[in-house]
Structure formats: C-alpha cells, structure tokens
Amino acid sequence: MDADELVTVYTVNEPTKAELIKAALHGEGIACEVSGENQAGMAGVLRVDVLVKAKDAERARKFIDEHEPHHP
C-alpha cells in the first residue's frame, strides 16, 4: 500500500459528526477528508467515511479510540 493512499479510519451515519472528527484530526496535524457526506435525504442511513493517508492511519485510529471510546 502506498503511504499516501487514503484509507478509512472512521465511519458514521452523521455528516456533522464526521466533520467534527475531521476537525479534531486536523488539530492533531493529521490531514483528512470526508467521503459520502453528500447523500442528501439519507439521514440515518448514509455512510460517511473519514479518510486519512495510510501513513497516518494508525495515529488517527489511536486518537479516535481515545476520544470516541464507543465507536464500533
């Protein structure tokens, strides 16, 4: 896997929560993107992924685990 390839580190049903995670990761110096947030009319059904570069994935997952202890 390429170190700059994007990988999913978190998935939620709420675009707002994904944006909060994205902002928190940016605050930690981890560049990330949100994918799937434009699924209009699908609230509660949609899947929103937070993506980071593969080289940052372990650090991002650890940060998320520490701050979102109840995520799947």
Rank of each mutant, 00 (worst) to 15 (best):
A54Y: 03
D2Q: 09
K22M: 12
R59F: 02
V48Y: 00
V12L: 07
A40M: 13
R47L: 04
L46C: 03
A18S: 06
A43L: 06
P72L: 14
T16W: 01
L20E: 06
D4N: 14
G41S: 08
S35N: 11
L51W: 02
L20M: 14
M1V: 11
P69R: 14
K53G: 09
F63P: 03
V48M: 03
R61H: 04
M1Q: 12
A40V: 11
K55F: 00
G41D: 09
V7G: 11
M42T: 10
Y10F: 15
A60G: 05
C32D: 06
F63W: 15
A23D: 05
V9G: 04
A18Q: 11
A60D: 08
V12Q: 02
V34R: 06
N38P: 00
R59W: 01
N13S: 14
V48Q: 01
H26S: 11
E14Q: 13
V52A: 11
E58D: 15
V7R: 12
L51D: 03
I30S: 11
K17N: 05
A54G: 05
Y10C: 04
A3T: 06
H26T: 10
H67N: 15
T8A: 15
Y10L: 12
V45Y: 10
P69D: 12
V52M: 10
N38K: 12
E28I: 02
I64E: 12
I21L: 12
E14Y: 11
V52D: 09
R59P: 01
T11K: 08
P15E: 07
G29W: 09
A3S: 10
K22C: 08
A24N: 13
A24C: 00
F63T: 07
Q39C: 06
E58R: 13
K55D: 05
D2F: 02
N38L: 12
P72H: 14
A31V: 03
E19Q: 09
A24M: 14
A18M: 09
K53T: 02
P15R: 06
D4I: 07
G29T: 14
K17V: 13
G27H: 11
Q39E: 11
H71G: 05
T11M: 10
E14K: 07
F63S: 07
T11E: 14
E68L: 07
V52F: 07
P15D: 04
H67R: 15
L25P: 07
F63N: 09
E5I: 03
G41N: 12
R59K: 15
G36Y: 05
V45P: 00
E33A: 14
G36E: 01
E5K: 10
T11W: 00
G41Y: 08
